[in-house]
């Protein structure tokens, strides 16, 4: 699905990541962990094309990311659902339209997808909040809305950046539950998190592999977690 081959990323003369090689196989479940500022978000951005590597090659769906033009990049993003750390929305549109936004921008018939949308909102527990504006939502609600928006196009890959960053333990369990369910449906999942408790909780439910960034290198963490 996503392959990083000797990828490096530097900015302003300093190297943030180097020699990163990893393959996300279809249906796999990966955690990405490491101290704050280690480059977790950068690595995720390299995976969905928000950043271009300064060295090495990123291949997404068997295509060299660098060779994609802007339209192809947009099409590629429709196949990768991303839950951003700060989950930004269009603040003037109600939640249901925000969640349906990927459908709208890809020209799908919204009326035909209404049933899907309703079900998805029920799945993330936001059905009663359908008409709320994003600024009115709590942190947990925003995270779940972002997840719903990320998966509405039924993407092949779901990438989440600290999805449990600012929610309590119970809510993070619920979000994890949703991601595990997605993985069981066959989606490739990649979650950046420094919450070891969450990772342990996940390992009991799904065969998750843990990637750790340390000293600018990516390592496959052992069973020590």
């Amino acid at each position: 699905m996503i392959e990083l081959d000797n990828v490096g990323y530097s900015y302003g003369g300093g190297e943030l990541l180097g020699d990163v090689s990893v393959q996300l196989a279809p249906g796999s479940f990966h955690f990405l962990t490491g101290p704050s500022g280690a480059g977790k978000t950068t690595l995720l951005k390299l995976c969905y094309g928000a950043l271009q590597p300064t060295a090495g090659q990123v291949r997404v769906f068997d295509e060299d990311m660098r060779k994609l033009d802007r339209d192809q990049m947009a099409l590629m993003r429709r196949r990768i659902g991303v839950v951003h750390q700060d989950c930004r929305f269009l603040d003037h549109l109600p939640l249901s339209e925000n969640i349906a936004l990927p459908l709208l921008v890809s020209g799908k018939d919204l009326n035909g997808e209404e049933e899907n949308l309703r079900e998805l909102m029920k799945w993330v527990g936001l059905a009663p909040r359908a008409d709320a504006l994003p600024p009115e939502l709590s942190g947990g609600e925003r995270q779940r809305a972002a997840l719903a928006r990320a998966v509405i196009m039924s993407p092949d890959v779901v990438i989440a950046d600290e999805p449990t960053g600012n929610v309590d333990w119970e809510m993070s369990q619920r979000l994890l539950q949703l991601l595990v369910e997605l993985n069981r449906m066959g989606k490739t999942v990649l979650i950046a998190s420094h919450d070891l408790g969450l990772i342990r909780a996940a390992k009991s439910q799904v065969q998750a592999r843990v990637l750790r960034i340390s000293n600018r290198r990516l390592q496959l963490a052992g069973a020590d977690l």
Binding site: M76, R78, F89, L101, P102, V105
Partner: peptide, 9 residues
């Protein structure tokens, strides 16, 4: 936001 959810230019 539009660009990130896959909107074309």
């Amino acid at each position: 936001v539009l660009r990130l959810v896959g909107a074309r230019d």
